[in-house]
Design a binder for these strands. Structure first.
Lengths: 154, 154
DNA sequence: GCGCTTTATTTTATTCCTAAAATAATTTAA
DNA sequence: TTAAATTATTTTAGGAATAAAATAAAGCGC
């Protein structure tokens, strides 16, 4: 494949679709629940983690953002009583985030809406088309991405 | 397609690929030319527009950003002498952005690098795979998107 | 011609993100 | 056991985006 013109078009299409879907989901989460997509992602990770919650560093890794960002985005969630922040009992450097009851309740409602919205975006695609789509995404050569097959450390 | 689980996975893959490619391109543009991807996009639009340049509103529309954002992102490009800002001769409310000679020169170098980087991301895909990929992207139902087929104003 | 509306852009305040500096707690080593 | 190094997180400064308010210029209606 030495035809960068088509590659550029594909990249612009990919970026455009991603931005448009993200904006749509974000707008719906905000208007219905007053929560941005970034905050939703944090609630989602904490829900998956269960009652033990997640350390700040682990949460950041999972969301692929910096720790500074996690500190900032959790702040309003804590202020609003959706997330609890506690420090490690053995090691006081460690910070653990968990979902509060209120956070759990809100998240379960939001998750249903989110699932439906995303489902509707892909509703015109057959199961095999979705599989093809994901397969092609996996074939992209993204520099610095660890998601490549069989790329173990030397 | 009533299987939101796979749809969610596809959406997360799509978002992840888009973010990763964008970060990679941005990093390379910054390190080699000291220009962010947002600034590159503006230079690119102005290059396509040619010597007549573009009005602030048109530029914003093309880049799908607000006019306030255009004002802000053009500012450093003007400061650095890559873009010229002039006001309309007939209507003083109108602002026109054009590429300077310096901007043209830098852009032509950057565009070559950009084309290669994006090309390499898609280098493992055949021509028909790229076509399939773009076709599937076009089948996504994105709320509020005007890119849907045959959706004329009523 | 003068006030009112519309149009075009800028400014302001806020969110989300990063990188780098600062802080704070623990562990290691001499 | 205390000074130095490491680890975990927060703070700070700044870029890129938005929405909404402010500014500024044109165009209308009478």
């Amino acid at each position: 494949m030495r035809e960068p013109r088509e590659a550029i078009r594909a990249w612009l299409d990919l970026l455009g679709a991603s931005n448009a879907i993200k904006k749509s989901v974000d707008t719906q989460l905000r208007s219905e629940f007053g929560v941005s997509i970034s905050r939703f992602d944090i609630l989602s990770a904490l829900e998956r983690a269960g009652p033990d919650g997640l350390r700040a560093g682990v949460l950041s890794q999972q969301l692929m953002v910096t720790e500074g960002n996690t500190t900032q985005v959790t702040a309003p969630l804590i202020r609003d009583g959706l997330v609890k922040r506690s420090t490690g009992r053995k090691d006081a450097r460690i910070v653990i985030f968990t979902l509060t009851k209120k956070g759990e309740k809100l998240f379960s409602i939001m998750a249903a809406g989110h699932k439906n919205w995303v489902g509707s975006v892909f509703s015109d695609l057959s199961k095999s088309e979705i599989a093809t789509f994901r397969k092609i995404l996996r074939k992209l050569n993204i520099p610095g991405s660890t998601t490549q097959p069989g790329k173990d450390a030397a």
